[in-house]
Design a protein around this nucleic acid. Sequence first.
DNA 1: GACGCTTACGTTCGTCGTAACTATT
DNA 2: AATAGTTACGACGAACGTAAGCGTC
Lengths: 313, 313
Amino acid sequence: MNLQQLRYAAEVGRRGLNVSEAASALHTSQPGVSKQLRALEEELGAEIFVRQGRRLTAVTEAGREILAGIGRILAEIANLRVVGEEHANQARGNLVLAVTHTQARYALPKVVTAFKRRFPEVHLKILQGSPHDLAKAVVDGEADIAIATEALAGYGELVSVPAYQWHHGVVVPAGHALEREKPLTLEAIARYPIVTYDASYTGRSAIDRSFARRGLEPEIALTALDSDVIKSYAGLGLGVGIISAMAYDAQKDRALALLPADHLFPVQTTRVAFRRGARLRGFAAEFIGMFVPHLTREAVGRLARGGGDDFVI
Amino acid sequence: MNLQQLRYAAEVGRRGLNVSEAASALHTSQPGVSKQLRALEEELGAEIFVRQGRRLTAVTEAGREILAGIGRILAEIANLRVVGEEHANQARGNLVLAVTHTQARYALPKVVTAFKRRFPEVHLKILQGSPHDLAKAVVDGEADIAIATEALAGYGELVSVPAYQWHHGVVVPAGHALEREKPLTLEAIARYPIVTYDASYTGRSAIDRSFARRGLEPEIALTALDSDVIKSYAGLGLGVGIISAMAYDAQKDRALALLPADHLFPVQTTRVAFRRGARLRGFAAEFIGMFVPHLTREAVGRLARGGGDDFVI
DNA sequence: GACGCTTACGTTCGTCGTAACTATT
DNA sequence: AATAGTTACGACGAACGTAAGCGTC
């Protein structure tokens, strides 16, 4: 058995049992991967994949367990490298953040600025995507830290902690009839077409639930992945915008009015997540500490080693 | 990086930083181990061992973390093999028990018999040693399950569960003066020399504490590792024996009298332990289930995956 | 001088990539 | 016919063991 075989098996598992694709992703030949897979199965005395003719069609019972173990092994290998990097230079390295657009645009700038001042030699990379993409990126080791309001708490492979809370707000063109609606109600909003986040982004599920609970079925005129796009179309009069209140800037968004909606939609909790068992770089733990009030770098380490359970709000 | 390098580093760490000894234990050449160690350190970018001249004298800060990670990796590799073995034949394999003499002689026979009837193809091996030896054997992967009354709960690398409780008893030659002492007291016992277990065996620490708490300092005439030896010498009149009550057999030990001492010494709890995170063979979990009442095979699996904490009585 | 790690070197084994082959869609 | 995986084979490289070298105790 060798590490290469484990990497190959893991990649094949991740790539939907497609050996050729895995080989190409690993920058090696397909026959090589195929052969090493067989050798691994041979040595373990258990088939990992079910073969129909010459194709891999499923993962066996034992295979599931084996792939899970391989995942843990490769994660620990990655941790070893992290220890080495940390040792080489505590203040230099790469930090990959996987965040939603709203976070990148409105929540991160302040922390990122402070972080960069403190760790000028750390190269920051910000990946964007849907909350599920972000979670997957962290699970697969492509990103170190994910920040999002949705989905993160649902992954057992991740440790997630609540970072801060916020509310949705309603944005309309200045002078819109809704501005005179006091107090603002869901019923009043539902009379207009809605422009808001795409499904599974930035608290969208909470918005839908709030309307549904009152028996309302507002027309969703347009959905987008980011608050800026939604603001633009709300400004064009395509509909009433529902965005994260922190995405409204009284200065820059003078053409729009923000109507507070704290009483209409539930409070949202943005969470920070990283891989369970991951050996985070010191500055990565520090970043989390800077982003989440009252969470020390040491506490982050403890969470990673996994008291096992999520920090519950 | 490859697995061989990790095995080498782990072995050197375990063998007190002696490369030659590690090489010989691994059935390979010393220069090979030395070179691979350097290669690993080189690749990780961190020294694992401190060198003074040509000798390894200590483990570095980073090295401690790295060796810990390597330990987890090698344990997971072992788990992969276990999955393979399980797949090959659920009812065949090896089960290594590490137990103290008292357990082997008086607690195990019934369970072992039942186990063998149920899994005739499983080869059972019973290792003996001091509780600390047993714990070490399991931590190092030399044994699957340890059973002892002392020490086990003190190892973070082990998951331990209470199996059953018992009391010490006093054995004296039939007709001994102590037989007429009713109720039996520690003071009365302390008037005679004592024959009992060696330090750190089978509840010896509790015996010492009981006397000490009453300000008594009995003369320990002789200590031994096993109950049978103690019984022999107590029978010869060398002193009053204090052994596990279950080690007294009214039939076979007719020359001795057992004086109950439940009220003199605290109740003892024998524990069963296995490596945290270990993927036990099905029959191993089953064995634990047979030994520990009310513990199902599934519960054992859950414990291994580590809700993290010991089962508390 | 004995022990213990490192350096040097030649052999061997394993891994990789190319090419040809076979089976499935 | 195209896609996907296996078998075959030759080349390269890495790891191993032996032998010699260098520092320590």
